[in-house]
Amino acid sequence: MKTTFIKIKIFLITTCLISTIWSCKAQTNIVNIIERCDSHPLNRDNGSLYLKDINNLYAPYLGTWKWTEGNREFTLTLLKQTKYHYNQGIDNYYEDRIVGYYTYKENGVELINTSNDNLIDSYNIKVDYRFNCRSKLSGLIKDIAKNKRYLSWFEIISPTQIRFKGKEEEDGRIQKEGMPPPPVVYVGNSFPLDMVLTKQ
């Protein structure tokens, strides 16, 4: 009888221990978004890593921003995506990120409008930002009229103004892996790569 009791006790302890280990393994490993470069691999085996905007650092950038000069007008809308699942190649993780869309007009004529973008599709998205290793909001913006990608970043000037700066990516043509080369890149850029935008 005593042997049976000990076996049952060992079985229960083992079951509890295994359950605890499994529940810990299934939990999300939450990392502050600004610590993304502190040795946190993005290719976790089960997508348990979550780069979270714990301190709500994205908040000052969200909303609609506008730049005008003479007959030109650039309007940018930035939105926060919470716990977006990035699963491409060997990378499998979740993150809070900023996405959005923009319009560009000259003489009142709309030349670019990306407001119909599918903001869930990582490849086709035209506006995609996150905090980099130096705690600056940086990312990519695509100039669909010129078929180019620009590395860009933001600097907060005041609660109602941000500075947008960009530079053309080396061989910054928009091309999907496995697809034929994109058309020839057009000279120049559609919109300025240094603008001060005002919150609307």
Rank of each mutant, 00 (worst) to 15 (best):
L151D: 14
F154T: 04
S39P: 01
Y61R: 07
R130S: 13
G100Y: 13
Q161W: 00
T20A: 13
H40S: 04
K176Y: 14
S39V: 03
D194L: 11
G47W: 04
P180Q: 03
R173M: 04
S158D: 05
R72S: 08
K52V: 09
I18T: 05
L51R: 00
L17D: 02
T68E: 08
E73M: 15
F74Y: 15
T20Y: 02
F164V: 06
G100D: 04
I18M: 11
D45P: 08
I141A: 09
P192M: 08
S19C: 12
P181V: 03
D171Q: 10
F11C: 12
M1C: 13
T198V: 05
Y102E: 02
G166A: 03
K83R: 13
I54S: 14
I30C: 12
W153V: 00
L140A: 13
Q88I: 05
T75W: 12
S152M: 01
G70S: 12
K66A: 07
D194I: 12
Y186S: 00
L78F: 06
M195Q: 09
N113D: 14
C16Y: 13
L12S: 08
A26V: 10
V187W: 10
K176C: 03
H40C: 06
F154L: 05
T75E: 06
R130Q: 14
I174Y: 05
G89D: 01
M179V: 04
R163K: 15
Y186K: 01
G172D: 05
T103S: 08
V109L: 03
P41M: 03
T15L: 12
G108F: 01
I141F: 11
E155H: 12
Y104I: 04
S39Q: 12
I162D: 08
P192Y: 07
Y150N: 01
V185R: 08
R149E: 10
P60T: 01
E95T: 15
M195G: 03
N189D: 01
K9M: 12
S190E: 14
E170L: 09
G172Y: 09
N29Y: 12
M1G: 15
G139N: 05
S115I: 02
